[in-house]
Amino acid sequence: MLVNPTSTVHPASVASAIGKSSVALRCTALVKRYVDVLAVNELDLEVYTGECFGLLGPNGAGKTTTIEILEGLTARDGGTVEVLGQAWGTTGDQALRERIGVQLQETQLADKLTVKETVRLFRSFYRRGREVDEVIRMVELDEKRGARVGKLSGGQKQRLAVACALVGNPDLLFLDEPTTGLDPQARLKLWDIVERFQASGGTVILTTHYMEEASRLCDRVGIMDHGRIIALGTPGALIESLGADQILEFSTRLKLAEGTLELLPGVRGVRVRAEGYSLTVSDIGTALPALLAELDKQQAELITLTTHQATLEDVFVSLTGRMLRDA
């Protein structure tokens, strides 16, 4: 099941209004093999200028490998990559690096340096870029300007990493799991920064395994699993592809008779899990009374019942049968 709603809502039309280079990044049939695993498996991807594109998937889906190939840091075993109209591995690599900003998943910046010294170091690598103080202000680290990196909190360190990526005033920003391990407030701050960058015309490609992050930040999302993109589209369209508004989860004391839930009105899909049942429901108004009536009829005794609006997580679950986080 490959969802591709881009044909209906095509950001390319947005991009073509801007200029010739509507595609900021393109890769085709990308392959990366490690000794015993195929990390990236024939992956095709296009990211349009000015959009925020998210690679959403569980750990080990191949997101980091993919993004590091796109950043020109990891060699690929097959396929083509074109970043801002240029391939990696030419004499123009240096010029291309002037135009991209990178935040890596596991970089630990030097603990002994201060925030300002760190940003200034990164600034010196670029021929043109933003002012050091301006970038520090952008990531809201003004007060920590003189603090040692080692003394910063996780969220502050991550914002500093983004500052280092922004200091060259890039056209294209790569963020690899920018908010993993951060508390909700720190996450919100980081999202603001990314949104402001995009609002100023920058293109963003990020990886995440948080569906909230993908649906908040990304114009389009590619859901990744086992080195492939298994679904691609705007968050809204992907959720819509489930044909459901609501996810209804419940558990009962007794097991329900098989095949009875599928027959209920408004139910689009049924999944039986260890802890209970999960229904994909198109119309909660008819499905819920019908479900309660059915439970009553079977005398199954309801223990818990929750409903939530369908999310990207549910899209992932419906595609792979696994949860994003424990996949």
């Binding site: 209906t8 809502v9 649906s215 809204g236 369209a237 959720i239 508004d245 999310t311």
Partner: peptide, 17 residues
């Protein structure tokens, strides 16, 4: 979008963008 998920909404969003 999460309430409705309608294509119309999404396309409005993109026009604004």
């Amino acid at each position: 979008v999460s309430m409705q998920g309608s294509k119309r909404q999404a396309s409005v969003q993109h026009n604004v963008e």
